[in-house]
Write a protein that binds this DNA or RNA. Sequence first.
DNA 1: CATGAATGAGAGTTCATTCAT
DNA 2: TATGAATGAACTCTCATTCAT
Lengths: 204, 204, 204, 204
Amino acid sequence: MADNIVREPIQKRSIEKKEKIIKYGFDLICEKGYYNTNTAEIAKAAGVSTGIVYSYFNDKHDILLEGLRRYANSIFYPSIDFINDITINKQNLSDIIRKVISQFVKNHKLSQSAHEEITAMTHSDKDVAEFFHENEIEMTNVLVELLKKNDFYYNDIVERTHIVVGLIDNICHEVVYHKHKDINYDTMTDIVVNEIVHILTKTD
Amino acid sequence: MADNIVREPIQKRSIEKKEKIIKYGFDLICEKGYYNTNTAEIAKAAGVSTGIVYSYFNDKHDILLEGLRRYANSIFYPSIDFINDITINKQNLSDIIRKVISQFVKNHKLSQSAHEEITAMTHSDKDVAEFFHENEIEMTNVLVELLKKNDFYYNDIVERTHIVVGLIDNICHEVVYHKHKDINYDTMTDIVVNEIVHILTKTD
Amino acid sequence: MADNIVREPIQKRSIEKKEKIIKYGFDLICEKGYYNTNTAEIAKAAGVSTGIVYSYFNDKHDILLEGLRRYANSIFYPSIDFINDITINKQNLSDIIRKVISQFVKNHKLSQSAHEEITAMTHSDKDVAEFFHENEIEMTNVLVELLKKNDFYYNDIVERTHIVVGLIDNICHEVVYHKHKDINYDTMTDIVVNEIVHILTKTD
Amino acid sequence: MADNIVREPIQKRSIEKKEKIIKYGFDLICEKGYYNTNTAEIAKAAGVSTGIVYSYFNDKHDILLEGLRRYANSIFYPSIDFINDITINKQNLSDIIRKVISQFVKNHKLSQSAHEEITAMTHSDKDVAEFFHENEIEMTNVLVELLKKNDFYYNDIVERTHIVVGLIDNICHEVVYHKHKDINYDTMTDIVVNEIVHILTKTD
DNA sequence: CATGAATGAGAGTTCATTCAT
DNA sequence: TATGAATGAACTCTCATTCAT
């Protein structure tokens, strides 16, 4: 058991195969849930035999983790690189926040079920939880740096940013899944944007 | 499964038995996770035989759902009845929000793992998801009524309240699990309280 | 895994069932080898389902060990109680040795394959090895006590007896399996008997 | 399997490769047991690919058998050639027996685990059993010839020698593995030597 | 000749559910 | 009603063997 060697594929075709297992396996897990997806299905979806799965991964759990490493970033923290190239100031802040939110929403829509399931696993799986733990704070830190670069200074910048990240996450969730029919999500987005501006500008 | 006859216990002892299965079963599920808890354990914890479980429930999944119906409210939406008896106004709003948050935090702390696990299942289980969907909007509606009763009026009151609920939920989570060492949670709470006051009072 | 509870059957039918698993499982293992016998076969042979096997045993290995505890003694160290009731002396020693050998041979013949396989496992399985280790020295000790009770005294009685046990074991093996066509086993037995007498009587 | 064509390596490098598979494969099997050694490990230990193994051997079992043929003799029946060059007589018999035993012990020590495992397989594997069957009698026959050459004559020489071989085997096992703490192995060896002398000299 | 990736049958084990008592 | 022994399908993972390169 301890001797179990996990091959690191070198040849192009092998790398592709491993990649396929991660991609299709992770897809299935996201769709149906970790416990409702078995290794045979993963192998079949990836177009390989069950045996080969265990050449590239220690176990089923490994596939999940690799999937996270590969795809979670793009699912959860979509590219907001466009901000780096522009200047943020109190005038355009509101527009930029709107852009960020719409970028997040776009990404969420790309992989609804993925997002759902992954969030779920955060709670029951130690490794998954740790993964997200690190990612979350990273996201906050990136934004903090961004703000500082654009002369947004205050003592509690980390806390403020963290709240902002939470607000963005919430609104995205709501907009994407449109859970509540009584809520006008355009209005809600407007309020959230205003609130974020308020948080990031009011320094009394 | 559809033909399965689930007895509705009439005798007092039977009702107690069913309650015990729900209580202890749900406890275990919250602690260890749905898939990591087996029916034998549930039966044992409830002090009944494995067979009797299937007299009261269609299947394991049923226990989870009944548990949710019974206990989720108290776990997720703690008693904020104290608000009903007092008058909310712009002066005491900040204090009341603080009280609500601390009440929520207290509840979270009382059942950390339960909260975690149940949230997890929201994503992988259709019935669980639906259950929470309904509960969430209900919570928002209760708060909306509360605000209205205290003369907080604006067109977008539902949306504002929903954002507030989200903010409260986030800050509770953060405080309870103290995930990020670089964040000062007292500061963060202060900002959140201010922000909620801002959302609920600024009507321009 | 750690929580795995192995039921200890109380009801008569359950005890019988456990006993059957041990008996038929051990039989199969002796016949076909441990690695060539699977749990499904064991269950089938015992007339039970595969699941029930794991109610009574931690794992397959457990069945083997229980089998050893139940049956190894009778296979390896047959009843030589008849010696206890008579007096051994230099006159009848040779006859008694002959009787002991024939008793051993009889036992060996009753369960040839069992004997073979079990011996095999002595070498590859730590628990099995330990089991036999303890049994072997016990056998020697029993004989030592027997000799002492009958006034066979010398300093090196343990060593002598141990050699005798080895000789008996060897001759039994030879007689039972009749391995070599060029050897006259009656003659060989005669020589061994003489030799044992020699070992146990010559005290110069 | 019967149709499988097993190449007989002609080129020097191929022969070396086959030898390596036998050597290192057999080593592993002896160390860890047949069922606990897989072909991948064998190939790796031999420095070849898994595929090539099946060019030289029908199956895994074949490697074991070849290993036995190559190495068992040296493991089980160590060189006692030195006897051929000297004269055995009743005077030096005891010394020579002692030398033989010490030679055997020395060899046993060289490959404890090998000896253990191979003995184990004798019982569960038909081919292995047969192999040893033949080897054993061969050993006896060699000794018989040796004795005859040195004027040790009696009708039952084969049987006597066979018993002697058994005694030597037993004492070696005991000395090498020192299984029983209550036994003085020097004393035991002395007795065994005396006994062997007795067997080979007393012709009444 | 040689490689090592790939296969897939089959292993041990678990557990939701049933059913004889 | 209640028990808990019994079921057996389904799971994860292994490995002797094959085969495309």
